[in-house]
Amino acid sequence: MLAQPLEYYSQSAFERISMKAKEIETPCVIIDTATIEEHFDALTSNFPWADIYYALKANPAHEIIDLVNAKGGCFDLASIYELDKVLSHHIDPARISYGNTIKKRADIKYFYDAGIRMFATDCVSDLENIARMAPGSKVYVRILTDGTLTADWPLSRKFGCQPDMAMDLLVKAKTLGLEPYGVSFHVGSQQRDVGAWDNAVATVKVIFERLQEENDITLQMINMGGGFPANYISRANDLEVYAAEMLRFLKEDFGDTLPRIILEPGRSLVANAGVLVTEVVQVSRKSNTALYRWVYTDVGLFSGMIETLGEAIKYPLYCEADTAGTGDESEEVVIAGPTCDSADILYEDYKYCLPHSLKEGDRLFWLSTGAYTTSYSAIEFNGFPPLKAYFV
């Protein structure tokens, strides 16, 4: 399957990307900033009842930080290194949250000393560290949710705790001198089932009610995480549908007076703005009778395409050779990266169709690759440099 770029990008956006692609060596990601602006505006117009905290891990480029900052957005961070980068843009610490539940005691203090006063947690030891290193701060507890069947990149198991433990932690937070502020959850990245938010909101409602009734604790915030989709091969509902349904879920449980709502978009903000430009390094067969050719490109699992692990994310693919007007037939292929690691195979079970005439030096364009490509790219595995990024 080959995508047509204009199904995913406006004519002007793809022209900007195409012009830049002619000037540069592969592999690289080209990011269209106008597309990110459009996506940010869509978020704020569809979710006027929520505060937008950009999940920096999706793409930590300075250009994107500037854009989000100029739009009045906030930032969800996961490390002191991300904090240093964001603070270098003179962003108000009040617009930053420390959303990682796994953190060193020294890093909590680093955030606190920088002026950050909102921290995520999901266990007793971390909560006690926050109380010790960030006294008086607001804390919100992340609960476990189950979106594994409908999210392309699930985020359960490692993060969050059961609701009963979440209530215990919020009660303990008060005794430790912290402010029990709210509850967070994440239903999974690239979540295609809008209903996944419904169950999570219902669970949060129970936590709010029980803490109020049994402990006289009034929670003020729900962090609904990210999970909104990008345009990959498996399409999802439009953002408008997510917004309308999520608001309905909230009003069913909380009425017209909602607590503070935080959203943490990452993929949905930046993914569609990027095109990963790659070059074919080699085309071969494993035997004279092999059914499938192997296509090796100059980008692989360790140089920006880690989300192809388990073939979880299937990016739209565009090949210039397919538009040469030769009437060349396409055939299913296996696609792999350039490193000497046998795990560096992008797609073997899922078969993309590429032209039979495809050869060394031809370019492939992976669409919707603005998120989790440069930020996942390894440094010097087999000597390959990190994935370069250009902005237009």
Rank of each mutant, 00 (worst) to 15 (best):
R117E: 08
N237A: 13
W197A: 11
R142V: 07
C319F: 02
T374P: 06
K104D: 05
E332G: 04
S184G: 15
E23Y: 10
D41M: 10
A13Q: 04
A3H: 06
V281N: 13
H89C: 10
T150M: 05
L291V: 12
F302T: 12
Y140F: 15
H356Y: 10
V275Q: 01
A389D: 02
T373Y: 06
L269M: 11
T374G: 09
D253K: 15
D198P: 04
G304T: 03
L77C: 06
K104R: 15
L77F: 05
E320S: 05
A324D: 11
W153D: 12
L269N: 00
I36G: 03
A196D: 12
K172V: 02
Y98R: 10
I30H: 05
D164N: 13
D216S: 15
L144V: 15
R235F: 11
D298W: 00
D256N: 14
V29H: 05
L155W: 05
R267S: 15
Y81S: 13
S137R: 09
P316F: 05
C123F: 03
F111R: 01
C28G: 07
E7D: 15
G227T: 05
P154T: 09
A13E: 03
A343N: 15
C340R: 15
V171T: 14
A173T: 07
I335Q: 00
F75C: 01
V241Q: 13
I91M: 06
L358T: 03
M305F: 11
L211D: 09
V171G: 06
N237F: 11
I30Q: 07
K22Y: 06
Q190K: 07
A42V: 00
Y54K: 08
T326N: 14
H186N: 10
Y390H: 15
R285D: 04
T35G: 01
S284R: 13
T297R: 01
Y296L: 10
I233Y: 07
S357Q: 13
A243R: 03
L77A: 07
L149W: 06
A273P: 04
R192M: 14
H62T: 12
G188D: 09
T145Y: 04
T373P: 01
L144I: 14
S342N: 11
K20I: 10
Y110V: 08
L211S: 08
F208P: 03
L56K: 04
S303Q: 14
F365H: 03
V194D: 07
K22D: 10
S377M: 03
V187W: 01
D164W: 10
I116Y: 06
D253I: 02
C340F: 14
L170K: 04
K314P: 00
Y81T: 15
